[in-house]
Each structure stands twice: as structure tokens, then as C-alpha cells.
Simulated assay, not measured.
Amino acid sequence: MTSTPHPADAGAPAVSDPEPSAVPAFRFQLPPEFHEIPLGIDVDEETLDAQMGAFARAYWGEREDLEPLRALTAALYGVNSRQLAEDGAVHSAFGVFPIGGTADGAQPPERISRCSLLVSVRELANPDPALSAAGIAEMLARGRDGGEAVPVGLPAGPAVVHVAGSRSVWERPEGEVETFAVRIELWMPFPDEDRLLLFCISTTDVQDLYLYQAVLADIADTITFAGDGARDRDQSREDALVMASATTPKAPANPFG
């Protein structure tokens, strides 16, 4: 699953997790290849367990012999979702993207590429979105993760794109096994709130980096914020959460270059 960074570099804009009742409203669109993972925000344990059970059935199907896998999936995703929500996540999903083949299905895809998407909201000292974005870009450029940080202009305001990779080594009986992953982030200060919107797409299919850059660019172009900040702060968290549409947005200009 995706983990979201908590920057603490000296001189960087102060970023922290938001209070649950203060998450502001915003909207974006997701392509249909994404499938939402429940986070259990503003619901009790019983409701979240039921949501996770439905998620596991959708993931594995209804075959009786797969019940142990469904139970394990519901339990693991449930624990992870609770932690993500405590850390400020407001939307979680996994993406399944066919690579190759034809749109009409006459030719099957050559392979399937998978990714995870996490959207979170954090507190940010944000006197001016453009200045905040510049500070975020500098912080990321000096961060331990390395990678590339690029300021971009989006219809909803200034933002920063950060791309970074990671390498893991696993000890196996047959020897060491290397795995690689890539993470594409969009850091966007709210236009009139002391808050930050953070999108993160991560994948171990590193050869599909350009695909997921384009996917996040399409999502980024659909982001909109509610205009009345004071009204947003007074809404309940459930009403203020992401409203993600499972429709494919129109093809916008790619702000990621």
C-alpha cells in the first residue's frame, strides 16, 4: 500500500495532519480503472467491517473456496485503512490498467499494470499558495527521498509534482531479491485555507512511469475547491471528503510536461 511522507526538513513549510472535523471540500475525477478502498471515515467498526467484506468479495469474487483469502484481505486492508485515515488520508484506491490489446476487446491486453492511489489533506502554513508551492518544491528537492520536484500550474492553482524511486532487498533462500518502486506525488496548497492536498500514485511496475504520470496529470486537471472556506470548515468530515467520480475526464493538456 501507499505510504504518504511526513516532511520535517528544516526551513520547510510546516505540515501536519488535519483535525478530522476540519477537512475542507474538494472534488476530482478518477478514471474507471481505479477501485476505491474503504477508509472507514465517520463510520463505526461494524460498518467498516461490512464495507471491507464487500470490498474483499468484489476483489476475489464469490467462490466458496476463496473465503479464507477474502477474510485475510478484509482484515489486512481494514487495519491499513484505519491507520491511513488516522494519518490524514481521505481517499484510497487501487488501479488496474490493461497494457496493449484493443479497446474493443478483440485483442486481449499484453499485461496488466497495477498501482495504488492515496489522497490526503494536511495542515500547512499557507499565506500564499504560490509561495507555499515554491517552498514545497525546495523542501522536496533537498529531501532524503531524492527524485525530481517540478512546480506546475494547474487550473485550480499552483502545485508541485514530485517523482521518486525506491529499492528494496529481500532475503530469500535462493539469495537476495531486489524490488523497485516509483512514486508520483502532487502537492497542492489550498487556495484560501491553511491546508495542503496531497495525491500519491505508487507502483512496482516501474516501466509504466510515464503512464502513471499521464494518469495523475489527468486527475490533477479535474481538481476543484469549494469557494467558501469558512463554510467548508463548518461541514462535517463526511460531507467534506473527496467526491471522486468514476468517469473518465476529458483529455486535458498534460501539466507534467
Rank of each mutant, 00 (worst) to 15 (best):
L124N: 07
L84P: 00
P173D: 08
T4D: 15
A230M: 10
P68R: 00
S16W: 11
R114E: 09
T179Y: 05
V43I: 12
P173Q: 08
S166A: 09
R122F: 07
E86V: 11
V206K: 03
T73F: 03
N254C: 14
R233L: 07
S16A: 15
A22T: 04
R167A: 09
I112R: 06
A137S: 12
P24F: 07
A89K: 01
A253R: 15
A22Q: 00
G135T: 02
M243E: 08
V121S: 06
D17Y: 06
M188H: 09
G105L: 11
R63K: 12
G147W: 02
D87P: 04
R237Q: 05
R237C: 04
D49V: 12
E138L: 09
G227H: 13
F28W: 08
L211F: 08
Y210E: 15
G95K: 00
E46I: 10
P108R: 11
A8W: 14
F97R: 08
V90D: 03
G157L: 05
A137D: 06
V177G: 01
I41D: 07
G88W: 03
F256S: 06
V121A: 07
G165C: 05
V169W: 00
S168T: 12
G146W: 00
E238K: 04
E148S: 08
R27K: 12
P249E: 06
D194G: 13
L66V: 05
Q29W: 09
P38Q: 08
G61I: 01
R27T: 13
A93T: 05
T47M: 07
D44H: 10
E110F: 13
H6C: 12
L117G: 01
C200M: 09
A137V: 04
D87T: 10
M243F: 11
Q29S: 14
A230S: 10
S92R: 04
D194K: 05
L66D: 10
T203A: 03
G257H: 13
S116L: 01
P249R: 06
V182D: 00
A8T: 12
W170H: 11
M139Q: 11
E67Q: 08
S116C: 03
E110L: 15
G95H: 00
L69E: 04
A71G: 04
